[in-house]
Design a protein around this nucleic acid. Structure first.
Length: 294
RNA sequence: GCAGGGAUAGUGAAGCGGUCAAACACGGGUGACUGUAAAUCAUCUGGCUUUCGCCUUCGGGGGUUCGAAUCCCUCUCCCUGCA
């Protein structure tokens, strides 16, 4: 059974969503978001979530699937996204995987097998231990610390949680086309700046306020970029200008990390950021022509 | 004009005779990444060099000393008190 899948990846603010919509309309696709923040309800402005009208034009999946204070994971994402993908394919359409969360993208395209669940209570206990204590614990359980970054607490915690089970990945799944959107960092910076200003103009502050009122500052939804920065502002410890600056800075740092992740993937077909849709379109048409129903 | 305080790498700021190319923070670069991933972590950040190392730095100039960012003299600029 032939089942092509197209992915659009890249750092924030490079126009993935807009491109995806155009592609989807032209090529009979439905969109599966691969973004760790779009999964969450009520964080709309700060995540640049695709608008309702966009979502009406073309179905989007894996958006608004968890509550603001709910735990989520890459493994959970994989399961849900896979379901959506199969569903789309069953209806004879092409899934368009779109997002900037490299781990989520790769979990699908390289069929990650995650190493084992985590128990929320146990995780909390582990979080309270020092790195040294975690090392000791891992050693006493006979776990192999040599394969992980032992200075990274989260990796050690995960090693303990998964009891040494090893995660695996496969080759890039066949029938996959990956398109990357990027541009020189300077331009990305400028786009981020502009976008953050726009978010604030659109009422990001109120969105944050109502979330913090309803769920408290500890909820997951307020830990993200564009959200956490406001806590200081609402405590009168930071001006609006400073808040905006910090959001921009955090977003740029994110973009760099995303770039680092995607850069090493040699299967990506890169396009510069103000995308020329015609170019991308050509590649996609060629790709999809291989699958014209016989 | 007199008295006192200050001038340190991209920024802020330690250092106050040797272990100082100079703590730390921020800013910047590079990279890692599988059940928190918008997370978490590593690493570099005066110049040249892969390393060893060499060279030029701590407002300017001149001294003291085996040795100075650190002590002395002087000049410039900034702040404070008295005029």
């Amino acid at each position: 059974m032939i089942a092509p899948i197209i992915a659009i990846v890249g750092p924030t603010a490079t126009g993935k969503s807009d491109l995806a919509l155009e592609i989807a309309k032209k090529h009979n696709c439905e969109i599966v978001s691969a973004d760790s923040w779009l999964v969450r309800k009520y964080v709309d402005i700060g995540t640049a979530k695709p608008s309702l009208s966009m979502r009406q034009e073309v179905p989007h999946y894996l958006i608004d699937v968890v509550e603001p204070d709910e735990d989520f994971s890459a493994a959970a994402y994989k399961e849900l996204a896979l379901k959506a993908i199969l569903d789309i394919q069953d209806r004879g359409k092409v899934p368009l995987l779109v997002g900037g969360t490299g781990l989520y993208i790769d979990a699908i395209l390289y069929d990650f097998s995650f190493a084992g669940e985590s128990d929320p209570r146990m995780r909390q206990e582990l979080n309270n231990l020092s790195l040294d204590e975690l090392h000791q614990m891992a050693r006493s359980k006979g776990l192999d610390l040599s394969q992980i970054d032992v200075r990274n607490k989260r990796r050690v915690i995960r090693l303990i949680e998964s009891e040494g089970k090893v995660a695996t990945k496969k080759e890039l799944r066949p029938d996959t086309l990956i398109i990357g959107l990027s541009s020189p960092l300077d331009l990305i910076k400028r786009r981020i700046e502009e976008r953050v200003k726009q978010m604030i103009a659109q009422g990001l502050k109120d969105e944050v306020k109502s979330l913090s009122d309803q769920y408290g500052w500890n909820c997951e939804a307020l830990k993200g970029i564009g959200y956490s920065e406001w806590q200081q502002y609402f405590n009168d410890k930071q001006s609006l200008e400073e808040t905006q600056k910090r959001i921009i800075k955090d977003s740029i740092d994110l973009a760099k990390r995303q770039l680092t992740w995607f850069k090493r993937n040699l299967s990506i077909h890169w396009y510069p950021t103000p995308v020329n849709i015609a170019n991308v379109d050509e590649l996609i048409t060629t790709f999809l022509n291989n699958y014209v129903s016989l």
